[in-house]
Structure formats: C-alpha cells, structure tokens
Design a binder for these strands. Sequence first.
DNA 1: CTTTCGACGTGACTAATATCAAGGAAGCAC
DNA 2: GTGCTTCCTTGATATTAGTCACGTCGAAAG
Lengths: 232, 232
Amino acid sequence: MRAEDLEDMKRLPLFNGVNPALVEGMLKCAYLQRFPAHVELAREGEPADFLHVIVDGNVEVYSAYRDRETTVAVLGPGSSFIVAAVILDRQYLKSARALTPARVLLIPAEAVRGAFATDAPFARSIALELATAYRGVVKELKNQKLRSSLERLTNWILVQDAATGNTGQIELPFDKKVLASRLGMVPEVLSRSFAALQPYGILVCGASVKIGARDALVRLAHPTATIDDPLT
Amino acid sequence: MRAEDLEDMKRLPLFNGVNPALVEGMLKCAYLQRFPAHVELAREGEPADFLHVIVDGNVEVYSAYRDRETTVAVLGPGSSFIVAAVILDRQYLKSARALTPARVLLIPAEAVRGAFATDAPFARSIALELATAYRGVVKELKNQKLRSSLERLTNWILVQDAATGNTGQIELPFDKKVLASRLGMVPEVLSRSFAALQPYGILVCGASVKIGARDALVRLAHPTATIDDPLT
DNA sequence: CTTTCGACGTGACTAATATCAAGGAAGCAC
DNA sequence: GTGCTTCCTTGATATTAGTCACGTCGAAAG
C-alpha cells in the first residue's frame, strides 16, 4: 500500500478515536485492492476472511435463493461491509460484487477481531457501526413488509432527492435493473411504476429523473421518519 | 427489586464478563416491572428511554405505516430489545406490546450509555448482541424478498421443529394472526397455506401442528443455512 | 457502416396475495 | 345455560406483482 493511501485509510470513520498504533497494525496487514466491474468480492456461505471497506466505486450486496436473487444494498466509498460476520467469526450472509471498477481495503478478520478484543474505542466504534447498520436493515424490512412497490419507488425518489440537496432532479446512480432488485421488484414493474408516476410530475429520461411536484409525491408516498430518514 | 430477582438479572448474557460493580450500578437504577397482556411497552418514534430485557412472557415487536401493521419479531425471556436505539440515543424504530403477561427489566438508557462508554467488556457484549441482531434482521429481509408465503411458512415450521428437538410435533407459541403478520402475510393466507401443506403431511389442529413427512417439507421449502439456521 | 448485444419499455397473460363477506368454534361474562 | 366476542376458516373477488414475448434504442465491436 502506498504511504499516501495509508494516510487516507487512517482517517476512516471506523478508526475514529482508536489507538493509532493499533490502526497502523491493522492496516499493515491489510490489502488495498483494485477490482474490475462485475467481479465477485464475497460469496454468501463462505467464512468471513476479511473486513471490506470501500475506498472507491460502488459495490452491490446481494443474496440468492433457488433461482432468485435480490440486491440487499448498493454501497459507495466509505462504507464497510460484513462487519458482523467478521466480529462473530461466522459465514457471510450475502454476496458482494463490484458494480463499477472499485478499490477496496481488505483487513484480515483475525486482525479485526484482535483489535476488537483489545481496544475499547475500536469495540465501541464497531458497536456504533453495527447499531447503525442494524437500524438500516430494520427500516428496509419495514419498507418491504409495509409498502407497495409504487410506494417504495416514490419514497426512494424522495430520499434520493433529499440526499442530493432537493434539486428536483436526480440521476440514477446505477442501472435500473439493479434499482428494481434493490427495491424488491422485477425490472418490468419498475418501468411501469415510473410510468405510473407521470401523473405525479415525474419525468424519466434515461438515467435522469425530474421531479415536477414534490408535494404530490409526498401525498402518494407518505414518507415516514422511522423508515426513510437516514438520520433517525 | 427483590434481592433474589437481582441475582437472576446479574446472570443475564448481556452482562457476561462485565465489571460486577457496573452491573450492580445499572441494576440499581433499573425497574423490574410487570405488564399485563396487550399493554404497549414502547412506541415507534419516541426517544429511547430504556433498554428492555424480557424476564418472563412474550413480547411482540411491530411497526405501522398508514393503516397497515406488521410484526417484526416475537421475543421471549432473555431477549433484550431496542439496544441499537439506546446506544445511538435515537428514536425507537418499532413499537412493542406484551403478548402475554410479562416481566420486563427496564434499564435507563442513560445508564446503559454510561456503561457502554466506560466499560470495555460491556461495549463488546453490546457489539456482539448487535451483530447477532443485525444478522437476524438480514436473514428476515432475505426471507421476505426471496421467498413466497408458502415457503416462508414451511421453513418456519422446520425451524420451529428443529428448535424443539425435531419431535415432528410443534405447538404454535402464539395466535395464528400474529404468526401470519410475523411471516408477512394476512391471516387468511396463513390459513390457506396450512391447508396447502396438507398434501405434504402437515396436520393442524388448533395450536398444534403435526409434521408427517419432514423430507417432503424440505423438498418444498429448500431450507438454507444463511436464512434459516439461527447459529449461522 | 454494419452487426451484435444488452438494457429498457410495453402489452398480454398468469400467479400470488389481499380484501370482503359470511359462518363456525372456542372462550368468557353474566 | 345465553349471549357476547374474538379467532379462525373458507369462498368469491379484486389488486398487485411476476412472466413471457417482442420491439426499440444505443453502445461497442468488427
């Protein structure tokens, strides 16, 4: 790993307040690896060998059952994944693949567990990370169990718009079929849902979505802090 | 709290390896409270005032959106809930109600956060708890997104049977409508699903379910470690 | 320039799940 | 006992989501 990259890594939120020597130790045995798009980074069911931290690019986290597959999340730079599996020394519950060319920091699970066992600030940092991740999944579960596909799409649009400054114009950050799977529907249903939102002021052109009337969407989608607000 | 109860509380898994003085301190300001059935223990959206630990009875954790409601989990003795909200000092994401008369240990959030900040073993214990809970929700999300209602029911039966010693005979631990909501379907669909399992050797009589042919169920439901195995 | 391929959209149809309505059975108050 | 109420089941029907087939478009390769 280059010295400059190493300095970047040390500033990761996961390492906030952690004994610098320990961070150094973890990073010394870590790999900063480049992956081309479409490559599999982790496979469901395998033992957790590495804690993954995304440095660049997007990663799709997904899971399969029978002949079906669903994407659980799409993660960007700064996100770490499979923390829980590493801490508990268990199998991955999900697979992951690079959606774009990506740089990922791979920290050996053994080192992470060691730091977790010896360094209190790191253990706390991990706990906070897990608590946040836990709440994220709970929200997603509620989203799935309580809402129709049209409601899920509409709320996703509103969240996305809010995250990019409420400009009334968003760019889809990945393919529509990935978005469909992320939202728990088949691509055809996503297409039709976008079409169904036209009367509510939504105009889709390629990857860009114009929001004509935010309030109409809100009336349709009933956004709720305990599902949609990433800070709640 | 009675001295005898206090000793019981100290043996909770959450307190494993934690400085006894600290545990004592947390318990000193905690309440061991009795709730009659149907009473609400926590309401979605409110700030997390207490960490709840179930001592006796069953608690339903649920969430509502518009005019819909879904149960996220049914917890029994030994389970704690709203750990994540307490640690992060956020709102509850879910409501909870007593399904049966219940005894619940209520530890003030402030005390829990204090212990978390000062005691490393407790922070680790919390992290492990959160990691396990996280994986549980992930499995549930996969269950919902990847399986049909019949598959969910069948796998639930298999898990339940395994948890009670593979006797080929299980007792539903709560009302069918709660089970339906837990499994993400409406009570009518649960009824029909039980009926649809008759050809697979399932015989339902009131709250007891006889499993005639485990292997037929397995062929139908394709149980998978990364969704169904509680230890994976 | 042409070909190929994958992503996307759309129509027609099917399957899965929800809703509505009705009735039976069990528990409980009186 | 009688009369409630709640839970559960079942049938008919509606709504929602998935499948299959096909056409278009645009990017990339040849």
